[in-house]
């Protein structure tokens, strides 16, 4: 509960801070628009050659693009800024300020930065999903909708864990700025359902980098492909990952030595 109230407080402060810079909204709109435009061009190129890609029709892949944009927005708004700041803090020794606060350090490093304008991607993601659902002409039942939301939350939690696990490595390897490139590069694979990748890569994108859980599984819920067993499996994996991340964070923290803060 305390974690949630801390998160809400930081959310409010972060939002107030960023709302001062309204021109950034226009910039974000343009950047997100360009990104979606590129995604649509690629889809158009693929579907100018074939009617369906590995069993996924055009509207279904549009739904994947929607989920990809939506989750990308969540990552850019809540996860990435916190992890980038953590890397800087470890390098500069300013993590001292977090460790001396009377609250859980993992919670504090995970909630203190918010880039509110990335909410544009979240909204855009929902719009694309809406268009895809209309094109699919299928009926999205209430159960599917619930499964979609649950899958989305589980996927986001797993992305958070993955990113924090990597960032925790900063306690050993000091220069970790490239981690953003690494993650965004791998995350881009989520533009396509992981089922199109070769086995070894699909395994990697499921269990090593949870792109499958973050994008493909929610998209499967939207397109009627998700089974209850798969969703339960995702929940179990998310829980395991949260526990491992917690443990690794504590191990990493013992390596930390503030130098010159």
């Amino acid at each position: 509960m305390r974690a949630i109230s801390l998160f809400l407080t930081f959310l409010r402060v972060g939002a107030l801070n960023e709302l001062q810079y309204r021109a950034n909204l226009a910039i974000q709109l343009l950047e997100s628009g360009i990104s979606v435009f590129t995604g649509l061009v690629v889809l158009a190129l693929v579907f100018s050659q074939v009617p369906a890609l590995n069993g996924w029709s055009q509207p279904e892949l549009l739904a994947v693009l929607g989920v990809y944009t939506l989750v990308g927005g969540v990552i850019g708004m809540l996860i990435q800024p916190n992890m980038e700041r953590l890397i800087t803090d470890v390098r500069q020794g300013t993590l001292d300020y977090i460790l001396t606060k009377p609250d859980d350090s993992q919670v504090l490093v995970s909630v203190r930065e918010i880039r509110i304008w990335r909410v544009v991607d979240v909204i855009l993601g929902f719009v694309i999903i809406g268009v895809a659902l209309v094109q699919l002409q299928g009926t999205l039942g209430p159960l599917d909708a619930v499964a979609f939301v649950v899958a989305l939350l589980l996927g986001s939690a797993m992305v958070y864990c993955f990113w924090l696990l990597l960032t925790t490595a900063a306690f050993w390897i000091v220069r970790m700025d490239e981690i953003v490139e690494l993650f965004m590069g791998l995350y881009a694979s989520g533009r396509w359902p992981v089922t199109i990748y070769p086995d070894w890569l699909r395994f990697g994108l499921t269990f090593l980098v949870p792109v499958a859980f973050a994008v493909t599984i929610p998209a499967e819920a939207l397109t009627g492909r998700l089974t209850p067993e798969l969703l339960a499996g995702a929940a179990a994996f998310a829980l395991a990952l949260l526990l491992v991340t917690r443990w690794f964070w504590r191990v990493g923290l013992r390596r930390y030595a503030g130098a010159s803060a």
Partner: peptide
């Protein structure tokens, strides 16, 4: 790290 992140992009295009 940087190079592996970058290599994901062509691998995706290649697979597609």
């Amino acid at each position: 790290f940087y190079m592996i992140g970058m290599i994901a992009e062509p691998v995706i295009y290649l697979v597609v």
